[in-house]
Simulated scan of single mutants.
Amino acid sequence: MVTNIILAVAAMLAVFLVVVALRPSTYRVSRSISVNASPATVFDHVNVMQRWQKWSPFENVDPAMKRVFEGPEAGVGAVYRWEGNHQIGTGSNTIVESRPNELIRFKLEMLKPHCGTNDVDFQFQPDAQGTKVTWTMQGRLNFITKILDLIIGMDAMIGSQFQEGLKQLKLVAENEPV
């Protein structure tokens, strides 16, 4: 009897591990919003990382978070490093490409609580409201993050944060004096 239970548990564990191993090794999360402001106005709120404190959904998670800005104030080479509690972790965000009013590409490196490197893009396109802003992140999944993706889903974990950040970015950009 005990042997059968152990064999059944081992078989279920083996099936679970195979399912996880066969999951895709990459992910992509993307959200968009229309902002009643010019592409230049919205672009500047993302291209100058010190301005993220006004709209980023990650800024208020840990009030004691330490922030360091390195390199130029804006554009390629600007770096934002942070160190916070277990919820916000430790990492850096570096602008690797910046095309005024069109695209900003970042290299996001997480050191704690999980290590990983991700590509993050902000695209700015004129639309009927003013500017359509699209925030996208993509990266690789290791075995542990594949389990998280299977149970919770990267889109569910990150997408709601992106949507909240875009709403705050919209609020900040639309209320900026012209």
Rank of each mutant, 00 (worst) to 15 (best):
Q168F: 00
V15E: 07
A173F: 02
G75Q: 07
G159H: 02
K146T: 13
Q53F: 00
A128W: 00
F16A: 11
V15T: 15
L148D: 02
V18D: 06
Q161N: 11
K167G: 05
K132F: 01
S34L: 00
S56W: 06
H86L: 05
V9R: 04
T145Q: 12
D155M: 07
V2M: 03
I5T: 15
S25H: 14
I104M: 06
Q50H: 12
N101L: 03
A173N: 10
Q50K: 14
W82M: 05
E174D: 02
K112T: 15
V15L: 15
D119A: 12
V9D: 02
G165W: 10
P177M: 02
V120G: 01
N60R: 14
T90S: 08
V19T: 09
T94F: 03
G130E: 10
P72Q: 03
F69K: 10
K54W: 02
Y80K: 09
D121E: 15
M110L: 12
Q168S: 14
I6Y: 03
F143Q: 00
G89N: 03
P177F: 05
P113Q: 12
N4I: 00
L108N: 05
V76A: 01
V61G: 06
M137E: 11
G77F: 07
G165F: 09
D119H: 15
C115A: 11
A156N: 11
T26A: 04
R51L: 11
V172K: 13
P24H: 06
D127S: 15
K54V: 00
P113K: 10
Y80V: 04
N93A: 12
L141A: 13
G71F: 01
A64N: 15
N4A: 15
E102F: 06
G153E: 09
V133L: 01
S32W: 01
W82D: 00
A64V: 07
R99L: 11
V20I: 13
S56R: 08
A37M: 06
Q163F: 02
L150C: 13
F58T: 10
P126A: 10
D44W: 06
N47L: 05
Q53E: 14
L141Q: 10
N101S: 11
I95Q: 08
N142I: 09
T26P: 02
A78M: 03
P63M: 05
A74S: 13
